[in-house]
């Protein structure tokens, strides 16, 4: 059994009722909420499809990181995964690379790095394509205008 979830795990949302159970547990414990309960809720949120939920989840994870030093190491991975899901690749990379620094043999983290790289590359290319497309269009329009002017 693996101690850390694969990235795929984060992509499968829980049922609303299941998330509700986690939330109820979290709220029941109030201020004195335990780490595990907090994590359960946070993880349920991160798995969700709604961006707002994911953000809350990442926030809770960062809380856990702050409050319980003994959980920091693994929290790095959860944070990286959460941020990856949010599309905050900069942060995701920051956490994941730190974890890889400490645990070079961590398979999940290596996987995640690959995923982040892919995503960044793909979206980056897309961005470049869009920008260059816009530039070309502008160039064409400008050229037409320029030519029109010269005439």
């Amino acid at each position: 059994m693996t101690s850390l979830p694969h990235a795929v795990d984060a992509e499968t949302p829980l049922k609303a009722s299941e998330l509700q159970v986690l939330r109820a547990q979290y709220e029941k414990e109030g201020d004195m909420v335990g780490v595990q309960t907090k994590f359960n809720y946070a993880w349920g949120l991160v798995k969700s499809d709604a961006r707002r939920d994911q953000q809350t989840g990442v926030h809770l994870l960062s809380d856990i990181f702050r409050v319980s030093p003994e959980r920091r190491r693994e929290c790095l991975y959860y944070l990286a995964l959460g941020n990856y899901k949010l599309g905050n690749y900069g942060d995701a990379r920051r956490y994941n690379d730190l974890l890889l620094d400490k645990e070079p043999m961590n398979l999940q983290a290596a996987d995640l790095r690959r995923l982040i790289d892919d995503k960044v590359a793909k979206e980056g290319l897309m961005g470049v394509a869009i920008i260059s497309g816009v530039a070309i269009a502008a160039g064409v329009v400008g050229g037409i205008l320029f030519r029109g002017k010269r005439r």
């Binding site: 979830p5 030093p69 190491r73």
Partner: peptide, 19 residues
């Protein structure tokens, strides 16, 4: 600062396993 300060503690189970 906080990221620098990550203690080496072996937990008997991970939070995810707990989940």
């Amino acid at each position: 600062d906080m990221l620098q300060n990550i203690p080496e503690i072996d937990n008997s189970y991970s939070l995810f396993q707990g989940f």
